[in-house]
Simulated assay, not measured.
Amino acid sequence: MWEETVKIEGPYNFDLALQRQSIDPLNDVHSELRLINIPIYEPEAEVVSVQAIGTTDDPCFIIKGKNNQTKVQVIERVYVIFQWNVTLHQINDHFRQTSLKDIFTLNRGTPIILDFSPYNCLVKCIIHQQLNMKFAMALTEDFVHTYGFEQDGVWFYPSPERVAKIEIEELRSMKFSQRKAEYLIGLSKLIASGELNLQELASKSDEEVTKTLVKIRGIGPWTAQNFLMFGLGRPNLFPLADIGIQNAIKKLFNLEKKPTYEEMENFSQEWHPYLSYASLYLWRSIETAE
């Protein structure tokens, strides 16, 4: 067993971050303890707990793991997942001068938290395509419970190698569409064979990543942008096709109907170079209202 205390620069509102993480039923969130148990996939499967003991302006965390041999790699991964190297006060100051100032004041210090592995991110994006949130969450949960595994009370997504061997009919029986089943299995086969290396994508530009991913059947711009944002932590993505963002902009600017892509582009000009944070806070603005 090991334990590490980490202090980072504020603002960083872990409580609001956990509130968003708790939307996903697969996440092991304990809001009253200000704690989340997360699955670490590399270099080996391990459950690690991350608990806040500081404040939004003076953030401090305790990380606990079991394997001393992998401690350094695990802490590095936790830093990436929770984006502890991102300076949120600079981002917050930027948005205080924009039309999103009220939303950023209300949700001050809310970070982007990455999916626990890049592969998980793509799987979740493909499953969620063109589905309402409730059904998408239920379908993802069913998929992980069927093909993934549980360790110390935390669920791990199945590996690409495992998913590559699933028969399409199995997923169809779980309410996957024919195409979505094909997309998921096809993607997993590319990764399992080494034809697609997600770790290598991390060193490429947003444009190069997008160009690589959209060649894959079942991955379009929306999925590529979500992967860049929540798989790799890129700061300047604004998925125009996202219904949630469209609804949030409609509400924020009191529009009679959903904005056009051109209107969204115009609204977002002043939000560069932190469009990913504009996206997150716009999502937050409608999540907290529901």
Rank of each mutant, 00 (worst) to 15 (best):
residue 216 I to S: 05
residue 186 G to Q: 04
residue 255 L to S: 04
residue 190 L to F: 03
residue 267 F to P: 06
residue 242 D to C: 12
residue 175 K to Y: 11
residue 223 T to M: 04
residue 238 F to P: 01
residue 104 F to T: 12
residue 149 F to Y: 08
residue 122 L to G: 05
residue 230 F to S: 02
residue 270 E to Y: 11
residue 120 N to Q: 14
residue 241 A to M: 00
residue 145 H to I: 06
residue 5 T to H: 10
residue 157 Y to E: 00
residue 225 Q to R: 13
residue 256 E to W: 05
residue 157 Y to L: 01
residue 103 I to N: 02
residue 222 W to G: 02
residue 170 E to D: 14
residue 59 P to C: 08
residue 277 Y to E: 01
residue 58 D to V: 09
residue 72 V to P: 02
residue 162 R to Q: 10
residue 9 E to T: 14
residue 12 Y to E: 00
residue 207 E to M: 07
residue 117 S to I: 00
residue 244 G to C: 04
residue 94 H to G: 02
residue 142 D to T: 15
residue 272 H to V: 11
residue 276 S to F: 00
residue 155 W to N: 05
residue 81 I to Q: 02
residue 37 N to H: 14
residue 12 Y to Q: 01
residue 101 K to A: 14
residue 251 K to A: 15
residue 5 T to N: 04
residue 141 E to W: 08
residue 152 D to F: 00
residue 49 S to F: 01
residue 241 A to T: 10
residue 253 F to K: 15
residue 282 L to A: 08
residue 174 M to Q: 14
residue 7 K to A: 10
residue 206 D to K: 11
residue 53 I to K: 04
residue 37 N to C: 13
residue 19 Q to G: 02
residue 17 A to L: 14
residue 286 I to T: 12
residue 55 T to K: 10
residue 8 I to Q: 06
residue 239 P to H: 05
residue 127 I to G: 01
residue 40 I to M: 06
residue 200 E to V: 09
residue 243 I to E: 03
residue 134 K to A: 10
residue 65 G to M: 06
residue 173 S to T: 14
residue 53 I to H: 00
residue 233 G to M: 10
residue 136 A to L: 06
residue 53 I to D: 03
residue 140 T to H: 05
residue 55 T to N: 07
residue 287 E to Y: 15
residue 182 E to S: 11
residue 77 R to C: 00
residue 93 D to Q: 15
residue 189 K to Q: 15
residue 201 L to K: 13
residue 145 H to K: 15
residue 235 P to Q: 11
residue 196 L to W: 11
residue 26 L to M: 13
residue 141 E to C: 09
residue 220 G to C: 08
residue 150 E to H: 06
residue 236 N to P: 03
residue 153 G to S: 04
residue 67 N to R: 12
residue 85 N to V: 01
residue 254 N to H: 15
residue 8 I to S: 07
residue 74 V to F: 02
residue 206 D to P: 04
residue 290 E to A: 12
residue 65 G to F: 00
residue 201 L to H: 13
residue 114 L to D: 09
residue 83 Q to G: 15
residue 36 I to H: 03
residue 164 A to F: 03
residue 9 E to R: 15
residue 18 L to V: 07
residue 2 W to Q: 04
residue 210 T to G: 05
residue 212 T to D: 02
residue 151 Q to Y: 06
residue 40 I to N: 01
residue 5 T to A: 08
residue 178 Q to H: 14
residue 103 I to V: 05
residue 257 K to F: 13
residue 179 R to L: 02
residue 132 N to Q: 08
residue 40 I to R: 01
residue 116 F to I: 01
residue 177 S to R: 10
residue 16 L to T: 08
residue 228 L to A: 12
residue 155 W to P: 01
residue 223 T to P: 03
residue 147 Y to I: 05
residue 30 H to Q: 15
residue 16 L to W: 10
residue 96 R to Y: 12
residue 121 C to H: 03
residue 33 L to P: 05
residue 279 S to T: 12
residue 120 N to A: 06
residue 12 Y to C: 01
residue 125 C to F: 06
residue 169 E to P: 03
residue 194 G to F: 03
residue 281 Y to W: 14
residue 85 N to I: 07
residue 30 H to R: 15
residue 223 T to I: 04
residue 216 I to N: 04
residue 59 P to L: 09
residue 53 I to N: 05
residue 264 M to R: 11
residue 273 P to C: 10
residue 192 A to V: 03
residue 104 F to P: 02
residue 272 H to N: 08
residue 79 Y to Q: 13
residue 175 K to V: 05
residue 57 D to S: 08
residue 220 G to R: 12
